[in-house]
C-alpha cells in the first residue's frame, strides 16, 4: 500500500513537472508569436504617429512624427528611424535606433539647428520615449527570451479569447518585477499588459485600443499606456501605416539621418 502511494505520488509529481515544462514552453511560444505579430509584422513599415501625452491634471501635449522600421530577420535585429514634426521646438529633429536583438542597441540623434549628429548612450532601455509613458523598450519590444513565462488560466477580454501569460525577468530589471499579458488567441496581438513593481502593485497598464487589418497584418492602430502612480497617460495613434514598401538599408545611415528619405517622410 505504502509503495503504491509512493508510486502514485511520484507519478503525479512527474506529471506536474511535465505539465509545468509544457506550460512554460507553451507560454514562451505564445510570447514569441506575440512579439512577432506585434513588432515584426511584414519586413518593413512606415507609420505616421501622433502621441498624446496627458498629465494627471488632464493637460495635453502632442508629438507628431513619422517612423520607419526595417527588419533584418524576423525576431532579430531591426532598424528604426523617427522624424519629428511637432512640437515645433523639435521639428525636423531625427532619431535612429539600430536594435540589437541580443545586445545593446545603438542610437543616434540629429539636431538640424546645429547640424549635429550625436550617438546617445543606450544602456537604459527603460527610460521614457520623448517624455511619454512608453519606454524605448515599449517602442521596439522586449525580447521574449529575457523573461520566464507562465501560462495562467485562459480568459476573455473585450469578447476575445485570450492567453494570459505571466512573465518575470530572468535578470533583475527595474522596468518591472512581473508582467501579465493578455494575448489574443487568434492574432497573438497583446490586448493588454500589466506591469507590476517589486511590491506586487500594478504601476503601468498598456492597452491596444484599436486593431485594424492592414495588408493582411493585424495592426494596433491606437495604443495607450497609463502610469498609475504618476497619474499620466499616453495615447498613440498610427495613421497611414504601410507595410513592405521596400525601405532600403541605406535609409538607416547618417546620410538619411541628416536628410530624410522624402519618398516616405514628407
Amino acid at each position: 500500500m505504502k509503495r503504491l502511494i509512493t508510486t502514485a505520488v511520484l507519478a503525479l509529481m512527474a506529471l506536474a513537472v511535465t505539465h509545468a515544462i509544457a506550460s512554460a514552453q507553451d507560454a514562451t511560444e505564445v510570447m514569441k508569436k506575440s512579439h512577432m505579430a506585434y513588432y515584426y509584422a511584414a519586413n518593413d513599415a512606415v507609420y505616421e504617429v501622433t502621441m498624446h501625452l496627458f498629465d494627471k491634471k488632464g493637460g495635453e501635449r502632442t508629438r507628431e512624427f513619422t517612423m520607419l522600421r526595417l527588419d533584418k530577420e524576423d525576431g532579430g535585429d531591426q532598424k528604426y528611424y523617427t522624424y519629428f514634426r511637432q512640437p515645433s521646438d523639435v521639428a525636423r529633429l531625427s532619431f535612429m535606433v539600430h536594435k540589437n536583438a541580443t545586445g545593446n542597441d545603438q542610437r543616434w540623434i540629429y539636431v538640424p539647428s546645429v547640424d549635429l549628429v550625436k550617438p546617445i548612450s543606450a544602456d537604459d532601455k527603460n527610460s521614457s520615449f520623448v517624455g511619454s509613458d512608453f519606454t524605448y523598450e515599449d517602442v521596439s519590444g522586449r525580447r521574449w527570451t529575457e523573461d520566464n513565462h507562465k501560462l495562467l488560466p485562459e480568459s476573455q477580454l473585450d469578447g476575445k479569447a485570450v492567453f494570459v501569460v505571466e512573465s518575470t525577468p530572468l535578470k533583475p530589471y527595474k522596468g518591472f518585477a512581473k508582467r501579465i499579458s493578455y494575448i489574443d488567441q487568434t492574432t497573438h496581438i497583446p490586448l493588454k499588459s500589466e506591469y507590476f513593481d517589486d511590491k506586487g502593485e500594478v504601476v503601468r497598464v498598456e492597452k491596444a485600443v484599436k486593431i485594424e487589418d492592414i495588408g493582411g497584418f493585424p495592426t494596433v492602430t491606437s495604443r495607450s499606456m497609463e502610469s498609475l502612480k504618476k497619474g499620466s497617460r499616453t495615447v498613440v495613434d498610427f495613421t497611414g501605416t504601410k507595410y513592405n514598401v521596400g525601405l532600403k538599408d541605406d535609409f538607416f545611415t547618417e546620410r538619411y539621418l541628416k536628410t530624410p528619405p522624402r519618398e516616405y517622410v514628407k
Binding site: 545593446n104 545603438q106 550617438p119 546617445i120 548612450s121 543606450a122 544602456d123
Partner: peptide, 9 residues
C-alpha cells in the same frame, strides 16, 4: 573615432 564602449559612448 567614436563608438559604444562600457555601456556608454
Amino acid at each position: 573615432l567614436r563608438g559604444q564602449v562600457l555601456g556608454g559612448i
